[in-house]
Design a binder for these strands. Structure first.
Lengths: 155, 155
DNA sequence: ATTGGACTGTATGGTGCCATACGAAGTGCA
DNA sequence: TGCACTTCGTATGGCACCATACAGTCCAAT
């Protein structure tokens, strides 16, 4: 937990020069790489709730970094896309991200990082099953139909 | 980060039967194992700010689980100690903790856990130095005189 | 055509934590 | 003996996120 906080802090600080926190930067970067998407998809990608995404979009929209455009196929949904200012910022974000990643990886081999990722996934799985049955010893239920997709912000 | 959240959630849920969250349980457990201590020490041990500790003590004090007693040697400080109810609860806390630890370790060898801990410490160190110099390439300053003590809630 | 269920984004209230600023009390130095 | 400096706990305001409930919309089945 402490490590997670340290890393988040390092990211927040790195992005503070761009006046963004980690989540905001992730959103802009993610849109830059995957194109406009609706808020529910963003929430899934960034592992946040829909409400949190909504208020993030609010903030970034007032700063003209992203923009809500109606989805022509579904009047319920907004497509969130980067403005030109947002796109410009995105390349900087990705640059900073890669730079910080390099510093975090410092002294860790590729194999080690792979193993670390593996450990974390296993821990998460254990935590999830543990959260399922509290005091009981019941077998793990069918709660997790969502084997966490790689391709998120792992690595 | 996601893993950290999952673990915290598992802990919170495990302790919810005792009507405690992870931080509260950690505090009572820590006092139970190390004896009464002042709030600054508690903050360092639980890796929280002093203000957060203060309000936690407030909560637990109204529930008569801990108690503030004046430090005879320093009139600024309160020593926080478990009440008898708190001590009773502590053994339950430790039991739940050990049980959950076992479930988290599931499928991980002792060597693997050791290695994981090592990775996390290294990552934290990297994050700390990265947080020191943002865009500059200056050498790490003397900010971190506090090599994170083992003996906390690692393992 | 209507209705029920599933899904989208929003509103609201709550939680846990931080950063900052403060008064009170201790400590070192002239 | 006085005066700065530090340290302790507290107060305040803010942030990021969650859970829940809700209105609007889509879709499938009658």
């Amino acid at each position: 937990m402490v490590t997670a906080r340290d890393i988040r802090q390092a990211y927040d600080q790195s992005f503070s020069s761009l006046d963004l926190n980690l989540s905001q930067a992730s959103m802009i970067g993610y849109i830059a790489e995957n194109g406009p998407m609706n808020q529910t998809e963003l929430a899934a990608a960034l592992v946040l709730g829909r409400a949190a995404i909504g208020s993030m979009v609010d903030q970034l929209e007032t700063r003209r970094l992203v923009r809500r455009v109606p989805d022509p196929d579904d009047r319920r949904v907004w497509l969130v896309e980067n403005t030109s200012a947002g796109s410009t910022l995105a390349v900087e974000i990705i640059r900073v991200d890669e730079q910080l990643r390099r510093r975090l990886r410092d002294g860790m081999s590729r194999a080690e990082r792979q193993q670390l990722a593996d450990f974390l996934v296993r821990l998460s799985a254990n935590a999830a099953t543990a959260a399922g049955g509290i005091g009981d010893l019941s077998p793990p239920n069918e709660i997790e139909t969502h084997t966490p997709q790689t391709g998120d912000i792992n690595d």
